[in-house]
Simulated assay, not measured.
Amino acid sequence: MVLTGLVGVLVVIAGVFFFTRQSDGTGHATAVRTPSPTASPLASPPPGVKCAGSACTGKDAEVMGCSGDLVTTAESTTLGTTTLEVRYSRACGAAWGRITGGAPGDKVRVSVGRDSRTAGITAAGDTIAYTPMIAVKDPAEARACATLASGRTGCTR
């Protein structure tokens, strides 16, 4: 019975080898090649999204359709009563910085490498500011920093 099981396993292994190898035309077997994940075409952006990747850099996330249900908070921290966030839209391939609970004079900056974008709260009664977007492949590439009117500063990670 054990011998029959062993023979069965060997037959299965031989079958897998036989059916998964390919010939390179010279009679030599070659490995089966599967396409790399980057070989597949990019999916179309969802309806309403007006940019993707580097085309989003410097643009407003709301105007370009990258916010709403298409955004997540990649990182956040608090500075007193102000929340600082790195916002990320996978559909757009872009990140931006945002502060909420702020006051006039507060500023936010998002950086990816040497590229950065800034924004601030300028009008009385406003409590939110967000930067223009920067293209990123991974939201961990982006870092947001804030400088509050009170002089307090802080950054994500």
Results as ranks from 00 to 15, higher is better:
L148Q: 01
P37A: 13
A14S: 10
P47E: 04
A61F: 00
Q22H: 12
I121M: 04
P132Q: 10
V63L: 14
P47Q: 05
S150V: 06
L10V: 04
A39Y: 11
L70V: 10
S40A: 13
T147M: 07
V86W: 01
M133K: 09
T57M: 06
D138P: 07
P47T: 08
A94S: 11
C51L: 05
P45S: 06
A61Q: 01
S40V: 14
A43I: 08
V110K: 02
R109G: 00
T127I: 03
A74H: 03
Q22C: 14
R152M: 14
T100D: 14
S44V: 11
T73Y: 00
V16G: 03
G80V: 03
E85Q: 06
G68L: 06
I128L: 15
T122P: 10
P35C: 07
Y88I: 12
T4L: 05
T156Y: 00
F17W: 10
E75F: 08
G154M: 00
G25E: 15
R33W: 12
G120C: 11
G80R: 02
C66L: 13
A146D: 02
T153K: 14
T20Y: 09
H28W: 06
T156N: 01
C92H: 13
A103S: 05
D60H: 06
R152N: 09
V2E: 03
F17N: 00
D24K: 13
T82V: 15
M133R: 14
G68E: 10
T72H: 07
A91L: 09
T57I: 06
T57H: 10
A14Y: 14
V12Y: 08
A74T: 04
G58I: 13
G102L: 00
T38W: 13
A124E: 07
S116F: 09
T26H: 15
I99L: 07
E85D: 15
I128Q: 04
A119E: 08
G105F: 07
T30K: 09
W96G: 01
A144G: 03
G25W: 11
